[in-house]
């Protein structure tokens, strides 16, 4: 949480504006006024944002902010109490095709039994046709498609290993391949960087950015730490206390916007090319006990590091 890396990429203002316009015009994903109550508590409150085709969007918030819940609502796995989620496929020109956009998903938690007779390549192959009936017949096209996908996520070296005996980072790449092989228009990833060291995290981010750019796939990636993502993010959705602020990094990661979101004064510091969101000195006692929100901070030069 306290290991930021680089500053927001110097945005090409015109490009950003064009992106935003496209997202607003024909968004692939439109979340409007979504509120969710779980266990009698409001986990998401009036969350609205849009993701345009091919955009790389970060869903940033500390633990318990509601990231997983929001992704599950988008997938239809959790019902929203109010608000709507629209997933509309668009063609190359940005016009809606009237179909539901295909969505790929890489969950936050996965636990594969190490004895399970399923190789990495078997799980990726299930990404093509898990919904089909019958046993998959061996086919050269299918095998080659799996091979290409494994190569794209740099997983060929352990393609024949049981999925359960791979390391967390290796399993993650296999799951990304499983999600991508069904050719989704939107890829949702839930904290894929949470358990990776900095170098692996940067590797995964670079991989996702490349695939997103090459194949025109929109990516919505959740993280509690935004710095590894900042160099590649087109837009950001910042969650705190179940409320969201969205826009470009410059629009959102600002003291006034985040202070309003957190409901207390926070500063946004740029230190050695990293962004730190901190509560002002003297305010930290308030932060310590605050539930669910700006938790997990550590002391850093008198200021409470929030994110």
């Amino acid at each position: 949480m306290t290991e930021p890396s680089e500053q927001a990429k110097p945005a090409d203002a015109a490009l950003m504006a064009a992106d935003a316009a496209r997202a607003a015009e024909a968004p692939l994903l439109a979340v409007e006024g979504v509120s969710v109550r779980l266990g009698g508590r409001e986990v998401l409150h009036d969350v609205s944002f849009a993701v345009g085709a091919g955009q790389f969007t970060g869903l940033i918030g500390s633990n318990g902010a509601g990231k997983t819940t929001l992704l599950r609502v988008i997938l239809g796995l959790t019902a929203a109490d109010s608000g709507t989620v629209r997933l509309a496929a668009a063609n190359g020109a940005g016009h809606h095709t009237g179909q539901r956009a295909r969505v790929g998903y890489v969950p936050q938690k996965f636990a594969f039994d190490s004895d399970m007779p399923m190789r990495a390549r078997d799980l990726v192959a299930l990404g093509i046709d898990a919904q089909r009936l019958g046993i998959a017949l061996p086919s050269r096209r299918r095998r080659e498609r799996v091979e290409q996908m494994l190569a794209a996520v740099d997983a060929l070296a352990f393609a024949d290993t049981r999925i359960g005996s791979l390391s967390g980072g290796e399993q993650q790449r296999v799951l990304i391949a499983h999600a991508l092989i069904s050719r989704p228009q939107l890829l949702l990833l839930d904290e894929p960087l949470a358990n990776l060291d900095l170098a692996s995290a940067q590797g995964v981010v670079a991989l996702l950015a490349r695939i997103c750019a090459e194949q025109g796939i929109a990516v919505l990636i959740s993280a509690h730490e935004m710095n590894p993502l900042l160099p590649v993010l087109d837009r950001i959705v910042y969650l705190a206390h179940g409320r969201a602020a969205s826009g470009t990094t410059q629009e959102v990661v600002r003291a006034d916007v985040l202070s309003r979101l957190y409901g207390r004064h926070v500063d946004v510091l740029h230190v050695h090319g990293r962004v730190l969101v901190v509560a002002g000195a003297g305010d930290d006692s308030d932060l310590e006990g605050h539930e669910g929100g700006v938790s997990g901070g550590s002391h850093s030069g008198g200021a409470e590091v929030v994110l």
Binding site: K109, F112, L123, L126, L133, G134, S182
Partner: peptide, 21 residues
């Protein structure tokens, strides 16, 4: 045999299967 592929994915990860519909 008929449900082989769906059952395989559900058995490996119910969450992946549910997300796929």
């Amino acid at each position: 045999v008929a449900l082989h592929r769906p059952l395989l994915l559900v058995s490996a990860s119910p969450e992946l299967a549910a997300a796929r519909g």
